[in-house]
Design a protein around this nucleic acid. Structure first.
Length: 620
RNA sequence: GCCGACGUAGCUCAGUUGGCUAGAGCGCCACUUUUGUAAAGUGGAUGUCGUGGGUUCGAGUCCCACCGUCGGCUCCA
């Protein structure tokens, strides 16, 4: 058993890959936005991590880094250094921090090592030999001791540097065509915060300089799509220091997009027979005792607030509230399934260091719903919910989704978990969706299906989640009267398809690089008069378009048309409608359309309205 | 929370080894101009230099604490 655990840990170690990519550097205005979608860009700039040649090259680059560190900072102890999706890293134990200048020196030394073209030679060693070789380095010794019996222990050498390593390398250091060190960051030994903090140096390597340059350009382009940057530039949202970290302020333009997302979701809910409910943000603590949140989820909950001697809590989830509505009257099997939906705002404690833009916050609104059904209805309800999740992602243009079946932790398993997991597997498999299993990643009340998407920089975020729950109905003693006249316990499905509106918005911003399609654009068209002589006409056009339901602004500034065009182009407005004397006299408009360089001829206002209507209907 | 970096005008940033009333560009305001598809001209206002302590004759520059941001570790929508 112990051996097995050790083997697992070793395997984990060898395949350790952070889910995040190399960091971006702060970047300036410059080249135009990339034309493709982030997924395509990622695919172009990044190779799949199982493409052996690049992986081997980067793995070798990690050794070169450790070699350079050994030369320049002999007191640093190398630990582990794998290839990752975007390059490689190597963790070192060293009292002094590596400075940016140190990285420059290390990179210089690495290039020398590459130029020297040291052959990479490997040999097998006994455990004793390996332990002896790395005495003084407890990390390497720990790894050497944990390599399972029967697996070969191998040492690899370039020049004067020998490392404990499983292999998978270039033949010589000269095969590394281009490399660059990216950043330093703290990382716990084996990712465990009880372990010492190591210093992780991130780098990337390619077989040619051209590929490296292309990757760096990609990082610059990705940084321009960063939702935090666009959120400010486009006036969508802010995070306010005075309010505290991780708390989101939706500005008018961001709130418009949110409203559209909510409307879209509400329409889906209505079609699928959901009922909207609204529940309080703060509730008595005993509710969370019954639900088990205090026992299992307290680490994410804020402390109690005392009101007249009673303890209240901010809700971290909406389920207990919805359960109270279910329980408020007797239910019959004829009532089921009951589907309660709420844009429910929840508050969860996140450690300050983990907060990130809109994707990791402390207060957020879920497009949450809880379905109460009979066990017989479970499969169908689950599949319908999964389909709705797919529809949502498709409508907002998200591709490259990843599906996870997250099971409950082993020690918490209850017999119904198998049924729940099977329902999830059935739904995935009948739809032909590839999925991965996240052992122990489930909610405390049951297993779940998670849907992940990538942001502009390649970071992976969970959006949708559909969860099966046999537990909370029991804890709250929920019942329905069956056709047999007896009481039965319903099954619950917890689901949030966009996940959190904040995170969904972040991914949406990055997906479109801030250039929202017409149906989502906060300002759909700006009416820009050539001079103030056409201002009245511009206002009339705006009034007419607003009456048709479009979101319109008039540029009344005392600027030349070139300035107005530039200003609103930078704001990524889909249409800038130019009106001069000619348009005023003819009753026409001259639209300048985002993404089209050629000048469009003026057209009658009615024809323009028809065009807008059409595009909004088609959601493009 | 931990490791590291950072915090100067609404935004992006300069501010030399601590030393006169803290600067630039963009934005904002006013005036001039009445403009035809990615930046017209002139003038003007704007800062408790993140917050609170400390060192010093003197702190945006040095030290400490806290807050926040960024890159990671960990956790999750």
């Amino acid at each position: 058993m112990h051996r097995q655990v050790a083997a697992d840990r070793y395997r984990l170690l060898r395949h350790a890959r952070p889910k995040t990519s190399a960091p971006d550097k702060g970047l300036r205005e410059g080249a135009a936005l990339p034309s493709g979608q982030p997924e395509a860009l990622m695919a172009a700039a990044r190779r799949p991590h199982d493409a052996l040649p690049l992986d081997a090259l980067r793995h070798t680059a990690a050794h070169v880094l450790a070699y350079a560190v050994q030369d320049l900072f002999p007191e640093a102890k190398p630990t582990i250094g794998p290839a990752i999706e975007t390059g490689f890293y190597y963790d070192f134990d060293r009292a002094e921090p590596f400075t940016p200048e140190d990285l420059g020196r290390l990179e210089g030394r690495m290039k020398e090592i590459v130029s020297a073209d040291y052959p990479m030679t490997g040999r097998q060693a006994t455990r004793e030999e390996a332990v002896a070789h790395f005495k003084g380095n407890p990390y390497k010794v720990e790894i050497a001791r944990e390599i399972p019996e029967g697996e070969p222990i191998t040492l690899y050498t370039i020049g004067d540097f020998t490392d404990l390593c499983r292999g998978g390398h270039a033949h010589s250091t000269g095969e590394i065509g281009a490399l660059k060190l990216m950043s330093v960051a703290g990382a716990y030994w084996r990712g465990d915060e009880h372990n010492p903090m190591l210093q992780r140096i991130y780098g990337t390597a390619f077989s040619t300089q051209k590929e490296l340059d292309a990757y760096l350009v990609f990082l610059e382009e990705a940084a321009k799509r960063d939702h935090r940057r666009l959120g400010q530039e486009l006036g969508l949202f802010s995070l306010e220091e005075d309010a505290g970290g991780g708390l989101v302020f939706w500005h008018p333009k961001g709130a418009v997009v949110r409203g559209i997302i909510e409307t879209f979701i509400r329409e889906g809910l209505r079609e699928r027979g959901y009922d909207q409910v609204v529940t309080p943000h703060i509730m008595h603590e005993k509710l969370f005792e019954i639900s088990g949140h205090l026992e299992n989820y307290a680490h994410s909950m804020y402390g109690p607030l005392e009101v007249e001697g009673q303890r209240f809590r901010l809700k971290p989830m909406n389920c207990p509230g919805h359960i109270l509505i279910y329980r408020s009257e007797g239910r019959s099997y004829r009532d089921l399934p009951l589907r309660y939906a709420e844009f429910g705002t929840v508050y969860r404690f996140e450690r300050s260091g983990t907060l990130h833009g809109l994707t990791r916050v402390r207060g957020f609104t879920q497009d949450d719903a809880h379905l109460f059904c009979t066990p017989e209805q479970l499969q169908k309800e689950f599949e319908q919910t999964a389909d709705e999740a797919l529809r949502l992602n498709e409508a907002f243009g998200f591709t490259g989704l990843e599906y996870f079946l997250s099971t409950r932790e082993e020690h918490m398993r209850i017999e119904t978990d198998t049924i729940a997991e099977q329902a999830i597997r059935n739904a995935l498999e009948s739809r032909g969706l590839p999925y991965q299993v996240d052992e122990g990643g489930g909610a405390f009340y049951g297993p779940k299906l998670d849907i992940n998407v990538h942001d502009a920089i390649g970071r992976k975020w969970q959006l949708g989640t559909v969860q099966v729950d046999f537990l909370l109905p029991k804890r709250f003693d929920l019942k329905y009267r069956g056709s047999d006249g007896l009481d039965h316990t319903p099954v619950m499905i917890h689901r949030a398809l966009a996940g959190s509106l904040e995170r969904f918005f972040a991914v949406l911003i990055e997906h479109y690089g801030g250039a929202f399609p017409l149906w989502l654009a906060p300002i759909q068209a700006v009416i820009a008069p050539i001079s103030e002589h056409q201002l009245d006409y511009a206002r009339q056009v705006a009034a007419r378009l607003r009456a048709e339901g479009f979101r319109i602004q008039v540029d009344e500034s005392n600027e030349k048309i070139g300035y107005k065009i530039r200003h609103w182009k930078l704001q990524k407005v889909p249409y800038i409608v130019v009106v001069g004397n000619q348009e005023k006299n003819d009753g026409t408009v001259a639209p300048n359309e985002r993404g089209r360089d050629e000048k469009r001829p003026a057209l009658p206002l009615d024809a323009f309205i028809a065009e807008l209507r059409d595009r909004v209907r088609q959601k493009n």
